[in-house]
């Protein structure tokens, strides 16, 4: 349970970072005309991804044990 949630958060965070990175960078885009990100607020997604990954450590330590609930 604890490990599962933490691992999910790390994976989700890394996924968010990848989406955010490629959403913000028009690598491979066929036009140089516009330098806007492909996905709205993609840089925020990237930052969110970084935050989610490191928040996983807090979750891992702070998640209450199952017995106590």
């Amino acid at each position: 349970m604890r490990r599962g949630v933490t691992a999910t958060m790390v994976v989700a965070g890394i996924l968010l970072m990848i989406i955010g990175y490629f959403g913000a960078a028009p690598w491979g885009a066929d036009t140089v005309a516009n330098s806007d990100p492909r996905i709205t607020l993609a840089p925020t997604l990237f930052v969110l991804g970084v935050i989610v990954v490191f928040s996983a450590a807090i979750v891992y330590e702070l998640l209450p044990d199952r017995e106590r609930r």
Binding site: Y21, A24, P43, F46, V47
Partner: peptide, 25 residues
């Protein structure tokens, strides 16, 4: 920066990795 930051700019690392990642971590 939250809306339009571009990974092609070296500033992206300063903004996202240093301020967001490094500080938060």
């Amino acid at each position: 920066l939250f809306g339009f930051a571009r990974p092609q700019s070296p500033f992206f690392g300063t903004f996202s990795l240093v301020i967001a990642g490094y500080l938060f971590a």
